[in-house]
Measured scan of single mutants.
Amino acid sequence: PDLGLTQLFADPNLIENLKKNPKTSEMMKDPQLVAKLIGYKQNPQAIGQDLFTDPRLMTIMATLMGVDL
């Protein structure tokens, strides 16, 4: 199971919303991170391994779920 990750990354406004959010806007200036996020739309399971190697993803996930870290 993808634990709902498919829906989190399926939002067509995902990148724009993250660019507008004060907690994630600075991160979204990294083209490699943006490319990763776009890739998760097609393969949400890929985030599982990346969560352990890129701490920014935890902040992004929390933001998408509405959790304040």
Rank of each mutant, 00 (worst) to 15 (best):
R56I: 09
K29Q: 10
T24F: 07
K41W: 14
K29E: 08
P55M: 09
R56A: 07
M28R: 00
Q49D: 12
K29C: 05
K29H: 09
M58R: 14
I60F: 03
A62E: 15
A10V: 08
T24V: 06
F9R: 01
T59R: 07
P1D: 10
L8E: 02
M65W: 07
M28Y: 01
K20F: 05
E26I: 07
N43Q: 05
Q32N: 11
L18R: 00
G48S: 15
G4P: 14
R56D: 09
D50N: 05
E26R: 06
P44N: 05
F9D: 01
D11I: 05
L57C: 03
V67M: 15
M65T: 10
G39L: 11
P31M: 07
Q32A: 15
L51K: 04
M65E: 05
G39P: 01
D11W: 02
L37E: 00
P1C: 10
K36P: 00
Q32M: 14
D54T: 01
K36L: 12
N13W: 06
R56L: 10
D2P: 13
L37C: 02
N21D: 09
L5K: 05
F52P: 08
T6L: 14
Q32E: 14
Q42K: 13
G39Q: 13
F52D: 08
P1L: 13
P22W: 04
Q49F: 12
P55G: 07
D30K: 00
I60Q: 01
K29V: 04
G66A: 07
D54E: 05
K41Y: 12
K36Y: 04
T6F: 10
M28K: 00
M61S: 03
D50S: 04
A10F: 09
Q45E: 15
G48W: 15
N43G: 05
N13R: 08
T63G: 04
P44S: 06
P22A: 09
D68E: 04
T53R: 11
K20A: 13
G66T: 08
D2G: 14
F52A: 12
Y40W: 08
T6G: 14
E16C: 06
P44K: 04
D68M: 02
D30R: 00
P55I: 08
G39M: 12
K23P: 02
A46P: 04
T24S: 03
K19C: 07
L64A: 05
T63A: 15
A35E: 14
A46R: 11
L37T: 00
